[in-house]
Write a protein that binds this DNA or RNA. Sequence first.
DNA 1: GGGTGTTGACTGACTAGTCAATCTATTTCC
DNA 2: GGAAATAGATTGACTAGTCAGTCAACACCC
Lengths: 237, 237
Amino acid sequence: MSAAEPRNGDREDLEGARSGQRRRPNGDAGAGAKTRAKTAADKRRAILDAGVRVFARQGFHACRVADIADEAGVAYGLVYHYFASKDEILDTLFLERWAIMLETIRQVDAQEIPAREKLAAIASFIIDSYTHNPDLMKVIIVEVTRAANSFGQTHLAQIRQAFTLISEIVTKAQADGEFKSQITAEFAAIAFYGAIEQVLTGWIFGLLPRGEEHYEQAKRLVVETICGGLDAPGGGS
Amino acid sequence: MSAAEPRNGDREDLEGARSGQRRRPNGDAGAGAKTRAKTAADKRRAILDAGVRVFARQGFHACRVADIADEAGVAYGLVYHYFASKDEILDTLFLERWAIMLETIRQVDAQEIPAREKLAAIASFIIDSYTHNPDLMKVIIVEVTRAANSFGQTHLAQIRQAFTLISEIVTKAQADGEFKSQITAEFAAIAFYGAIEQVLTGWIFGLLPRGEEHYEQAKRLVVETICGGLDAPGGGS
DNA sequence: GGGTGTTGACTGACTAGTCAATCTATTTCC
DNA sequence: GGAAATAGATTGACTAGTCAGTCAACACCC
């Protein structure tokens, strides 16, 4: 359950001895008016948001740190005040978003609804994530998966976590008789996620038509395709 | 470790060419002897093969052209004698392999077998491609398919072609009543390919166990998962 | 006044691609 | 047959440019 939490501690050694932010001893920031800490946090966020746009537009490798600073409307050096490296910006974007996804999956799984509805909720969440912020999803799919190589084990552990959570949903449904057992839960999770990601990839590269009705249709079809093959033959509907 | 290896064999092919090819008047090339054109083609191929290994190991962006030359055991400049740019090496690798895949899909489609078997044959081909040359498939998936952005429209057109061919198989099966029609053929093709690619990605990044039995199981499960949801409910096949 | 936030010119390291020279197989011509 | 010429293959030092990350100084709020 809380397996992801200890991993946060892994990153504390990222603070170098010389550069970078010191953790404020008492992080108590005033509420209401724009405090200094508040505007500082705004700048950090502005850099992250700019990173999303620039990475999506030019690609992680092709863009320069100066492009991110320009897009955010801050000085070049400020990027290095908030982040240790260009990589760390991408890391942060991925980990932020992925944590939200993992949390959503956990919440969905906690509900007392059929597995089919759980998968539908997960598919909806991911597709809504795309419609809400296509650039961010593009960056995560195109730049992070690609770099999972070079990036640390952290990313792979996070990705594995998502597959584990989904396959647990399938395993339980198989035990309940809602899903058949010929297909391993692990494989079902891979196929389910793979189908969704390919749909997003299709939209990202213009291989599939975009638009509200297509997004809604995709949500239905992912579940219909995957569950049509997972539903127990003798079962209800 | 492997960086030092090519150094040792540096002069190897020079000596081999010299000893194997003495003066041959009247252009009478003995059988088995390497002609000039032949060894030239070999060098080109050596560079491509080295590219596969280096791209897979270090990633396209992270590696240097010098790494490819070293790995191939040729001089830096020779890479540019055969290829206009580093990009062109990757382009060539992708287009070569993708053309083979498109041709295979066309041949499979031409056979008079159920659509389910056609999809099984395609899944087998792709998975066999991975088992036969994991590095190449890794490069294609990680560096090209996911990065179609940065590369020209050629790549996207090729990728689209694959989806079109697969969805035509589904469309025909729907017309025949072998597959149900609730799921659009276009979407089915995306889900099918997405599931396969995600399985390969799992193997590439060590998220899924590798091994002969897993490869064979994956071939079965892809078809079982996707077709289980596509087979006409009442259909007799 | 002290400290955090902010600036942007600068540096040091790195690499894609060039090119002039050299080498070798093949062809030409006597 | 063999010398000379040709065409293509091969070499690696070099150029020209890029860009991530540093740093010393300045701005501004508490």
